[in-house]
């Protein structure tokens, strides 16, 4: 690929990176301020750990618990969603379903994906109560799995198509069982796609707010729900919100640093056709 205009390109990229980073830096800074210093718009301020302290250790704050919940919900719903979506994508893509079944299935999941989740939250709450899951993580895990299923189906649908037909035919001749074919022969080929999809699902689950707000109780509240609490009617607790926002992006940043190669190469291998 052509490597032209190196310097202008760098300038453009640095500028973009700057636009991305400034709000982050400013917000992390806000976490170290006192509320009044922030509201008065003081440019120079003496840093204080009060907000971080409040978010992490005050008895009125459940942030550590929220963090734990977000991890549990994120990891569990990602695992569940990946398992279901991969087998379903495999089934629809490679197992010769009648075309009408494929169209109906993917059409519904696409339509479903377009529906604002607030629409569904009420019904989900009633269902969760009906089967007595209201105080468990399972409620949010199931909801997030469902919400992310269409995206996972779509991405995995692309990736399973990359598995060469000759391999499957060879496995067929060797008498491999269907599970063996999927797990031992096909999976290594779409593994990068699986990783990329998994990371995407995790991010979407980590960020989801509207449904978690309705389904969560104190013991199962996720980070976004916990953060929203700081925006109450009488005063927006900006510094606590900033401190918790800064803390909440840590796992995502770690994931990104460790996993971005997997995402990009995973998505590249699928080539998104």
């Amino acid at each position: 690929m052509r490597r032209a205009h190196a310097i202008p390109v760098h300038i453009a990229l640095i500028l973009s990176a700057f636009i991305v980073l400034v709000p982050f830096i400013w917000v992390i800074g806000a976490g170290f301020r006192s509320q009044i210093s922030l509201l008065m718009g003081e440019i120079w301020f003496s840093p204080t750990l009060a907000s971080f302290n409040d978010v992490l250790f005050s008895r009125a704050s459940d942030f550590v618990l929220n963090f734990q919940n977000s991890l549990i919900v994120g990891l569990a719903s990602t695992a569940l969603c990946l398992a279901i979506a991969t087998t379903a994508a495999w089934s629809l893509g490679r197992l010769h379903w009648p075309r009408s079944v494929v169209v109906l299935f993917l059409g519904w999941s696409l339509l479903f994906h377009m529906l604002p989740p607030v629409m569904l939250a009420g019904a989900w709450y009633s269902m969760v109560r009906a089967v007595h899951l209201e105080n468990t993580h399972a409620a949010i895990i199931l909801a997030h799995t469902t919400l992310n299923l269409p995206m996972a189906l779509w991405l995995m649908g692309v990736f399973v198509r990359e598995v060469p037909q000759e391999l499957l035919d060879a496995a067929n001749i060797d008498g491999a069982s269907p599970w063996m074919t999927l797990w031992k022969i096909a999976r290594p080929i779409f593994a990068p796609g699986l990783a990329a999809t998994g990371i995407m699902i995790f991010i979407f689950s980590w960020n989801e707010f509207a449904v978690a707000l309705v389904l969560a109780v104190k013991q199962t509240a996720t980070v976004p729900v916990g953060i929203a609490k700081y925006a109450q009617g009488y005063e927006i607790q900006y510094t606590q919100m900033a401190a918790s926002a800064a803390l909440s992006i840590i796992p995502a940043v770690i994931l990104l640093v460790l996993g971005q190669r997997a995402i990009v190469s995973g998505l590249t291998s699928g080539a998104l056709k």
Binding site: I203, F209, P224, I227
Partner: peptide
């Protein structure tokens, strides 16, 4: 990076 930040944040 911004993709990883919850919408509420």
């Amino acid at each position: 990076l911004p993709l990883l930040v919850p919408g509420i944040v």
